[in-house]
């Protein structure tokens, strides 16, 4: 799989070579991003001179690319900023900036919307492809997808395919979890875990009732956003006696929140972090 991806890359690089030089005279479109999720797409795909600005969160604690982002102007999501900077393409989330999406539609700015309801790696690949096409960076987009797929394929295929890994439950500081139909579920399964919450029939971002956890305890806990959470909320759920006992008895595997602020190209980082922790706590060929 990895070899095939590498071959694809080589072919693409070859194809992209002449076309890139042909396009050299017409400058590639200038773009800005209005969410931390969109920032990642823009940074990964665009040439530095294409980037007009990144969102104000790009240099914050939820960013996997804070240092890199510091080199670019930042925006606060105001329509004025994008018009002033002559932005041709604006990348934003499908949720959160309702008014911005509405008003930018009136101006000569093309919007690329990243669906916050994205779940699978195929959907992420499709988003990458869409953004790359708009940025006139098709080759870089395909390379990013190939890299993502190659890294996915490298993660203990037998554990992942047999769905035989340890079962875990995912917790955010406020007690929220992830059932089927969430990108966290996708990441857990690709990392060789079974998602207890999904196996119990839960869908969406709800939580497993603590009572249920007593009846069917998971083999481990996956936590995220505990590093960036407000302490007040953090303390209430994570200091519950049941949760503290469970986290004392079972391995707790923290995933940095910045890996999955949304289902973007960096979700592969979350998968790799999870897989490494699974190997550490449960061994490579756990069944």
């Amino acid at each position: 799989m990895a070899r095939r991806a590498a071959f694809c890359l080589a072919v693409l690089a070859f194809l992209a070579g002449p076309s890139a030089s042909a396009h050299a005279e017409t400058p590639k479109p200038r773009a800005a991003s209005a969410s931390i999720c969109a920032d990642k797409y823009l940074l990964a795909l665009a040439d530095p001179e294409q980037i007009a600005s990144l969102s104000w969160q790009a240099t914050g604690p939820l960013s996997t690319f804070a240092e890199e982002a510091a080199a670019y102007p930042s925006n606060r999501g105001g329509a004025e900023e994008f018009l002033d900077a002559n932005v041709e393409i604006l990348i934003l989330n499908s949720h959160g900036s309702m008014e911005l999406r509405r008003i930018m539609g009136q101006f000569d700015v093309e919007m690329v919307v990243i669906a916050t309801t994205t779940i699978t790696f195929d959907e992420i690949a499709q988003s990458v492809r869409d953004v790359a096409a708009k940025l006139d960076q098709t080759a870089r987009g395909e390379a990013l997808i190939a890299d993502m797929q190659a890294r996915l394929a490298r993660i203990d295929p037998q554990v992942v395919e047999e769905d035989a890994g340890p079962s875990v439950t995912y917790f955010r500081p406020e007690g929220g979890g992830a059932g089927a139909g969430t990108f966290v579920d996708t990441a857990l399964r690709h990392a060789g875990f079974r998602n207890l919450q999904a196996d119990l029939g839960n869908t969406g971002w709800g939580r497993v009732p603590l009572e249920q956890l007593v009846l069917t305890p998971p083999d481990g806990l996956v936590t995220s956003f505990f590093d960036t959470a407000y302490k007040g909320v953090n303390a209430r759920f994570s200091s519950h006696s049941l949760f503290t006992r469970l986290s004392a008895e079972k391995p707790v595997m923290p995933v940095p929140g910045r890996y999955w602020t949304c289902a973007g190209p960096m979700l592969i980082d979350a998968v790799e972090s999870l897989a490494a922790q699974r190997r550490e706590h449960f061994g490579g060929g756990h069944d």
Binding site: N93, H95, G96, M98, T116, T203, G204, W205
Partner: peptide, 13 residues
């Protein structure tokens, strides 16, 4: 609401 982002949108609105 099944989508945390939609909740965000409602609150901000």
């Amino acid at each position: 609401s099944p989508n945390p982002w939609a909740i965000n949108e409602m609150i901000f609105w």
